[in-house]
Amino acid sequence: MSARDNIFARIRRGLGLPTIPLAEERERALSVINDKPRGPRPSQVWQDPISRFIERCQQLSTTTEVVSDISAIPQAVSNYLNQYNLPRQMVIWPDFSQYNWQEVGITVRVGSAKGDDLVGVTGAFCAIAETATLMLPSGVNTPSTVSLLPETHIALLDKKRIVNYMEDAWALYMAEKGTLPRAVNFVSGPSRTADIEQTIIIGAHGPYRVHIILY
């Protein structure tokens, strides 16, 4: 008997089930899993997801800026770097390599972040209005490290892709991609800790700053 067999036998005994699993147990479990029932969500007290998202960002110490369209992004990023006196070298997701970074005096490296990268730029698969959360799947074109290792994380978010609840984000992902990637990282603001005297400090192992540019 393996450890697995022993554990499963104890579980079934504990639940008062026959030693050999019945086919209907699996079918019953699968039918719930395939139905994916949604639990109750807090009432949607917001008019539109975009204003809710921006309002909730403030509570998380995430800064935001809305720009008119994609072409305004490099200048907006440049202004942000100036404002916080940040270096003008960034590591970025491949999706944004064609942007006109050179024109605004920023040098970029495309791909995964290294331990000493100071500014990282990502997109987002979508965002969640309820909690002002970015959904960042891992992938060749969406390396996880860019939103993790640098001290500053700038996210470029298509404002049409803000959904209301996490359940909506899962449904959207499954509808468009079919299966989960290696990692889905939900990011809600800069990293923090309250492990010393329950005092909230922004900036732990992840970024100190999260800035979201909505286009």
């Binding site: 909730r56 509570q59 998380l60 791909g111 995964s112 309820e130 909690t131 959360t133 891992s138 992938g139 060749v140 074109n141 969406t142 390396p143 996880s144 490290t145 989960l180 990637p181 290696r182 990692a183 889905v184 990282n185 939900f186 990011v187 809600s188 603001g189 800069p190 990293s191 923090r192 309250a194 992840g206």
Partner: peptide, 24 residues
């Protein structure tokens, strides 16, 4: 737990790094 509507990070991890991944 901490009185947060969500924690800064929630990670859902499935399987290993493969050809479709840059890291992990």
């Amino acid at each position: 737990a901490t009185g947060q509507s969500i924690t800064n990070y929630v990670s859902v991890m499935t399987g290993v790094r493969d050809a479709s991944n840059a890291d992990g």
